[in-house]
C-alpha cells in the first residue's frame, strides 16, 4: 500500500518537521524555557503519524483531513516561533507550546481524574435524559391531545439555560455530582424531547397508515415504526443536547467542583498558571473531538437506512 501524497501532504510533513527541529535544537526564549520538552516533540510526532494513518485508512476523499492538518501544523509552527522562541507577547498570558505540553507530563494524574469525573457526570446526566425524553416524546408525539399541550410548553421552556437551576440544585441535592447530573439532565432533556416529539409528528402519515394496515399493537407501533421514523430528528436533538451538556458541565465545574475539566481551568486560573489553563483547554478540545466522533459513528450506523 503506497500512500498518495499531494503537495499539501508534503507541506504538512514539512511544517511538522520544521517545528520538530526548532523545538529540538533551538533553545526557547528564557521566559518560556522548560526543563523537559519531550512531550511537545512527542505531540509533533503523534500528529505526523496520526495524519499518515488517516491517509492510509482513507486513501480517497481525504482533502478535508489534509486541509485541517495543514492548518493545524501551520498554527503549531507559528505558535512555536512567535511565542516559544521569540516570546513576542506577555510570557505569563501567552506561553509557548513546549511549556503548555509539558503540563500533560506533570499533571497527567489530576487531568485523568478530571476527565473521568467529568465524563461520569456528563454520561449519567445525558443517558438519563435520553432514557426519559425519548419514550416520553414518542408517546406524547403519538397522542395528539398530549402533543397539543406539551409541544408549545416544551418549546417555551427549552431555551432556558440549565444553569439557572444551579442555585436550587446546589441547595436541594446533597453532592456536587448529584446536582450537576441533574443540571445536565435538565439541559439535555428538552432538545431531545422536542426532537422526538417533532420526529414522531413529521413521520409521513402514509407510512403510519401503511403500518396500521398490518394491525400493529400500540407497543409495536411505537417500537418498530415511531422510534425508527423519528430517529433522524431524535439524533439532531441529541446532538444539540450533547453540546449543551458539555457547556453546562464545564460552567458548573468552574463554579462549584473539586475535580473535572472545568475545575482544572478555573483552579489554575486562580493561581495565574495560564500555561495550565491552555493545557486544560486543549484537553477539553480533545475530549470534545473524541465524543463528537463517537456520536457521528453512532449516528451513521443507526441512520444507515437513510439516503445521504
Amino acid at each position: 500500500m503506497i500512500l498518495k501524497f499531494n503537495r499539501e501532504s508534503w507541506g504538512i510533513l514539512f511544517l511538522l518537521a520544521v517545528t520538530f527541529v526548532l523545538a529540538a535544537i533551538v533553545p526557547d526564549a528564557p521566559s518560556q524555557a522548560v526543563a523537559e520538552n519531550g512531550i511537545f516533540l512527542g505531540v509533533i510526532i503523534f500528529l505526523a503519524v496520526f495524519y499518515l494513518v488517516q491517509l492510509y485508512l482513507q486513501p480517497e476523499n481525504n482533502r478535508a483531513v489534509t486541509d485541517i492538518f495543514l492548518l493545524l501544523s501551520a498554527l503549531l509552527l507559528v505558535w512555536e516561533i512567535t511565542l516559544g522562541k521569540l516570546a513576542l507577547l506577555d510570557p505569563l498570558l501567552f506561553p509557548g507550546p513546549a511549556r503548555v505540553f509539558a503540563v500533560f507530563g506533570s499533571d497527567w494524574q489530576i487531568m485523568l481524574a478530571g476527565v473521568a469525573s467529568s465524563l461520569f457526570i456528563l454520561i449519567s446526566g445525558y443517558l438519563l435524559a435520553l432514557l426519559i425524553a425519548v419514550p416520553a416524546g414518542l408517546y406524547i408525539g403519538w397522542r395528539k391531545r398530549l402533543f397539543d399541550v406539551a409541544y408549545p410548553v416544551a418549546k417555551a421552556v427549552s431555551p432556558i439555560p440549565p444553569t439557572v437551576y444551579l442555585p436550587y440544585a446546589i441547595v436541594l441535592l446533597p453532592t456536587f455530582t448529584a446536582s450537576s447530573v441533574f443540571l445536565i439532565f435538565i439541559g439535555s432533556f428538552w432538545p431531545i424531547f422536542v426532537g422526538t416529539v417533532f420526529g414522531v409528528f413529521s413521520i409521513d402519515h402514509r407510512l403510519i397508515n401503511s403500518a396500521r394496515t398490518l394491525g400493529l399493537s400500540d407497543h409495536q407501533m411505537v417500537r418498530r415504526i415511531l422510534l425508527p421514523g423519528a430517529l433522524p430528528s431524535i439524533l439532531s436533538g441529541s446532538l444539540i443536547s450533547l453540546i449543551i451538556s458539555f457547556i453546562t458541565l464545564t460552567v458548573a465545574e468552574m463554579i462549584a467542583a473539586t475535580s473535572g475539566l472545568g475545575w482544572y481551568i478555573e483552579y489554575n486560573h486562580q493561581f495565574a498558571n495560564y500555561y495550565k489553563v491552555i493545557a486544560g483547554m486543549i484537553l477539553i478540545a480533545v475530549v470534545v473531538i473524541v465524543i463528537m466522533s463517537v456520536f457521528d459513528r453512532v449516528q451513521q450506523y443507526v441512520l444507515r437506512w437513510q439516503q445521504r
Binding site: 409521513d204 394496515t213 415504526i225 437506512w305
Partner: peptide, 13 residues
C-alpha cells in the same frame, strides 16, 4: 386485507 400503496408501503428503516 393486504394493501399496496403507490410508493410508500415499505418502511425505509
Amino acid at each position: 386485507r393486504g394493501t399496496v400503496f403507490q410508493d410508500y408501503s415499505l418502511f425505509p428503516w
